[in-house]
Design a protein around this nucleic acid. Structure first.
Length: 451
RNA sequence: GACCCUAUCGUCUAGCGGUUAGGACACCACCCUUUCACGGUGGUAGCCCGGGUUCGAGUCCCGGUAGGGUCGCCA
């Protein structure tokens, strides 16, 4: 039997990080077994659905590289799709649901009450054989004891989640339902519906939830709850995928960094943990840094330029060689692209923006004559390359009887406005003699040196 | 209130009856060094509590506690 799994998000306007992991686990499971990964949009709640809300989900999944074999190609409910089990929007499947409701009605398994149709739920405990959680015996709660039946068709004629979810999984031939643990209790209802339709329910696998770092549940408003936030913050999708895969699952060999093919090869539902995991932004940032340091250079240039433009820095005003040389000095040094404008923005700004605190610390009277002397030296050196500049600075330092670091800090500040950044000698080489001397001159003209 | 799930360093995890309880992030110290990172070395830190079972329990069972989920004409 060919495995068929699905990710069935509701278009809420964003792709939740937990949803993304659910999608990832489904996708990894499908790819591992050579199965089919289906995307279905659960848009039965017309009030809060929009094409844009669906696009956000499609974009998020595409960015993460979780491509679906069947499902919509655009956010338009009546638009094109892949696969022969569609439509893949629940809003387009109304006839299917009504037919199923009729069937239940005709067999006395459902009945009308106050204009709504309710399903006759069994009162006996339901046994759920979950691939992750194990065997779960779900009994009725006290409220359900009063009335175990539940609405499957609202009085306004709209089908309800439990019904649509089951009908679609049935019609689409879903073999494994991999979803968040928040659905575990609902599963009893779903199994009862499958049985009412006379078919065996699919296999279930409920994965634990992702919590905030403080252990509270993640809601839409929490920072980092939405996948697109990571894209805007300059994260790499491969880092996020790697991190998400390791939340609640482990390859068990002490490896933290795994490529997508490795994840596909090793992923196994049975090894998924049963307890919730807290999202750790620090560890994600570390992994992100690991991926940044081995990013192909061209992709780094491309994403770096995008980040710079987003920050209002126009790289197109500079020669391509200059841009590349400048970015080369930043490669491997920033952990996210969000950090880049702050880290290397001085290359693309003619006016240096000084860090006031650093100015107070380094542009001091004692330093003025030293920096003037260094400026003179730099004006005379033959070649303006990193090696020559290093030699020149160190020899001036030696002549002055100070450590190189004494000169390094104010020069860096004069050239970049910051106390941290790319290698000083390389950055001066890229800036070039003219800009460096100009920046030193302008820095020396400031009043702080004489204060 | 009822029902269901869960419980190893601060966090993510390995462990599957006998281990000096391992790794990673974070943190601390030192080294490297033109800054910041990176890298290297070392370190602090953990089996929720109480009963059983067993020669022996982080590992199995029960109870408690704590956290999470569900019980909707939301999904």
């Amino acid at each position: 039997m060919k495995i068929r799994v699905r990710f069935a998000p509701s278009p809420t306007g964003y792709l939740h990080i937990g949803g993304a992991r659910t999608a990832l686990f489904n996708w990894l499971f499908a790819r591992h077994h050579g199965g089919t990964f289906i995307l279905r949009i659960e848009d039965t709640d017309a009030a809060r659905n929009s094409q844009e809300a669906v696009e956000v989900i499609l974009d998020g999944l595409r960015w993460l590289g979780l491509h679906w074999d069947e499902g919509p190609l655009t956010g338009e409910a009546t638009g094109p799709s892949h696969g022969d089990r569609g439509p893949y929007f629940q809003s387009q499947r109304r006839e299917l649901y009504l037919r199923r409701v009729e069937a239940l009605l005709s067999r006395g398994l459902a009945y009308e009450q106050d204009g709504a149709i309710k399903f006759r739920m069994r009162r006996e405990p339901v046994v759920i054989h979950d691939l992750i959680v194990g065997e779960v015996v779900r009994r009725l709660t006290d409220r359900e004891e009063q009335d175990p039946d539940f609405v499957i068709l609202r009085s306004d004629g709209q089908p309800v989640f439990h019904l649509t979810n089951v009908v679609d999984d049935l019609e689409m031939g879903i073999t494994h339902v991999i979803r968040g643990e928040d659905h575990l209790s609902n599963t009893a209802k779903h199994i009862a519906l499958f049985e009412a339709f006379g078919v065996k329910p699919p296999h279930y696998a409920h994965i634990p939830l992702i919590l905030n770092p403080d252990g509270s549940k993640m809601s839409k408003r929490d920072r980092g709850a939405a996948v697109h936030w990571y894209r805007e913050e300059g994260y790499l999708p491969e880092a996020l995928v790697n991190y998400l895969a390791l939340l609640g699952w482990s390859p068990k060999d002490n490896r933290e960094k795994l490529s997508v093919p490795e994840l596909i090869d090793r992923f196994d539902l049975a090894q998924v943990l049963r307890h919730n995991a807290r999202f750790d932004p620090e560890k994600l940032l570390w992994l992100q840094g690991e991926y940044m340091r081995e990013l192909p250079r061209d992709r780094f240039y491309e994403l770096a330029v995008q980040a710079l433009h987003k920050a209002g820095l126009d790289t197109t005003r500079y020669p391509l060689n200059y841009v590349k040389a400048a970015l080369d000095t930043c490669y491997g040094k920033v952990k996210t692209f969000r950090e880049l404008p702050d880290y290397g923005g001085f290359y693309f700004r003619e006016e240096v923006e000084y860090d006031p605190q650093a100015v107070a610390q380094h542009f001091v009277p004692d330093q003025a004559p030293r920096i003037r002397r260094l400026r003179d030296s730099l004006g005379r050196v033959g070649a303006f390359d990193a090696a020559t500049l290093e030699t020149a600075l160190k020899s001036v330092a030696a002549e002055l009887g100070v450590k190189p670091a004494v000169l390094v800090h104010p020069v860096r500040l004069a050239c970049t406005g910051r106390t941290a950044g790319p290698s000083l000698y390389h950055l001066m080489e890229v800036l070039g003699r003219e800009r460096v001397l100009d920046r030193l001159e302008r820095a020396l003209a400031r009043p702080e040196w004489n204060a």
